[in-house]
Design a binder for these strands. Structure first.
Lengths: 308, 308
DNA sequence: GGGGATAATGCTCGGGGGGAGCATTAGTCA
DNA sequence: TGACTAATGCTCCCCCCGAGCATTATCCCC
């Protein structure tokens, strides 16, 4: 092996996501007064055959959780992150894992994702109310800088693109509006995390939102059987958007993603619902099975542009 | 900084893609009789502020190229890759870069992507002719193994999903049909590359194909002005699929991705065409601007399933 | 037993987008 | 002038999807 290589220090970070009570949650560890951090640790270079296996072992050790779905998220390696000592470079390879929420053991706990990134939840106040305030602050920061204004327009819309979570966070970071950036505002939006972990979480949320639309990943977060409304709420929680109930049903039923079990719920308020289960064989039938999330604000555009 | 970390060796690998003559090409370096390899090198931990900057510097040094668009692709870190000496772990952080093809300096040269992954080009012989042969071999390998047969069905369709490039390559690798896996068939499909570089290239092609549909990345590969047919051919080259000309025009024109320049081509065979240019402000108007590639085989499904 | 309240479910209307193909136009080249 | 090659215009038609209206099935409370 004659390739050049540099010695670096590496860490595995895990963004473990669950949805419960219509809220996406992320598993964090909190140590004595420190801001919450993602579960993370070293690769066991001698025993972990792959990065993913190392990550699974690490999650097991630290949280007692056995994760199902997992994918590599991103590798972070900016100079200003990690090690402060000397010029040793610190790399973090982050993974995204999806689980059904269970009580985590050890020192881990579940935390609302939208407590960290509140502007990403646009389900209530049917506008971008929360984001609107931020936007004003951002525009003050941008001043007349063209490039900055364009980045803001792209990240915050209209049209709002749910997928651009990272771009929005980085703008807030870059403009000093967020606590990690040294902002001392008491009203800095969202709770900070240790290191660059909030950025990693933002990356994860963006990834999930994207994947949702073309891979059946939601089902990793749901129990074996569920009502269509549960499915809808889970999607809404992740996408941060409200959906039209009847159309969602139609979409899901026609897509072949699920099949009815014949059983129905009982004892709940309202008419009892049928229980459904995921039908893995969709993947063999249609090219990119997923739950389409309409682009919020897409109509704003077409109204002005295509309506001519 | 009290986080655990492990010392590893890291390398940056670059998949630099261009399209010319309706063929996607990847930049490779060839040293005395060795199989072609991706440009790669060490991060300069003292000077490169970010991984991406390090990668740009490295490409400049090794190939004389100044790349525009670049994004992180994936981090490879299996134990069996890289360093053979001892149990030192070797990590590779791969980047994808898109450029307009120019004569590369130094020892680099452009190589057809489909020379490496021939089964990914389904533009001719309007079927999956080339892939069909492979599929037969794969099924022989799978035998009665359910999981294997399912992986094959998922990767090779129908319906064929252009995006699953990596899954297809890994099946071929896993089944020993490909030269890197030690296959000594003289007819092992596709030219091998050094190390795991063909796998990295496969990852890159899949990524591009996916991105194409929701981000205006094609334009990184085209000259300032171009005919709609050039645009179409570039998309077809990357997607490995033929498109319907009139519909493609309609799609592109309606999307607002391009604007006419008023100029027209001259001296070519056929009616002269108008020249177009990319209109970056689409990004401020529509949520996910890209050139939709229809799923090949999608109709096979809907015929059987929705046609009832 | 009746009147909400809450969901589930059925169904319809109307516009847009996209697949397929026919027809016409405008150059180049024998 | 006729053949050839592209560019461009336009049409048909079906499916998808956004938006609502309407009806049904339970639970809860009086």
């Amino acid at each position: 092996m004659d390739r050049d290589a540099s010695p670096v220090m590496m860490t595995l970070d895990a963004v473990i996501i669950a949805v419960s009570n219509d809220q996406p949650r992320v598993l964090v560890v909190e140590r004595d007064g420190q801001p919450p951090a993602l579960p993370s640790g070293a690769l066991d270079t001698a025993h972990d055959a792959t990065l993913e296996l190392g990550m699974r072992r690490l999650i097991r050790d630290q949280t007692g959780l056995e994760v199902g779905y997992a994918e590599q998220l991103y590798t972070f390696g900016d100079r200003d992150r990690g090690a402060v000592d000397g010029n040793e470079r610190h790399l973090s390879v982050a993974y995204l894992a999806l689980v059904r929420e269970t009580a985590p053991a050890l020192e881990a706990r579940w935390m609302d994702v939208y407590e960290l990134l509140p502007w990403e939840d646009t389900r209530q106040d049917d506008g971008t109310a929360r984001a609107a305030g931020l936007r004003t602050d951002l525009e003050r920061w941008a001043g007349r800088d063209r490039a900055r204004r364009e980045r803001i327009a792209l990240a915050f819309g209209p049209p709002w693109d749910g997928i651009r979570v990272l771009e929005r966070y980085e703008l807030l970071y870059g403009s000093g509006l967020v606590a990690e950036a040294g902002a001392e505002h008491l009203d800095a939006p969202g709770r900070p995390m240790a290191f660059d972990h909030r950025r990693i979480t933002a990356t994860a949320l963006g990834r999930i939102r994207g994947k949702l639309t073309y891979r059946p990943v939601v089902f990793e977060l749901l129990p074996e059987t569920f009502r269509l409304l549960d499915l809808q709420h889970t999607v809404e929680a992740l996408a941060g958007v409200k959906l039209h109930k009847q159309n969602f049903r139609r979409l899901v039923e026609r897509s072949g993603l699920v099949e009815g079990t014949g059983e129905r719920t009982a004892g709940t308020t309202g008419r009892p619902a049928e229980l459904f289960r995921y039908r893995p064989s969709v993947q063999l039938e249609r090219p990119r099975p997923g739950v389409g999330v309409p682009y919020r604000g897409a109509r704003d555009v077409s109204d002005g542009r295509h309506g001519q």
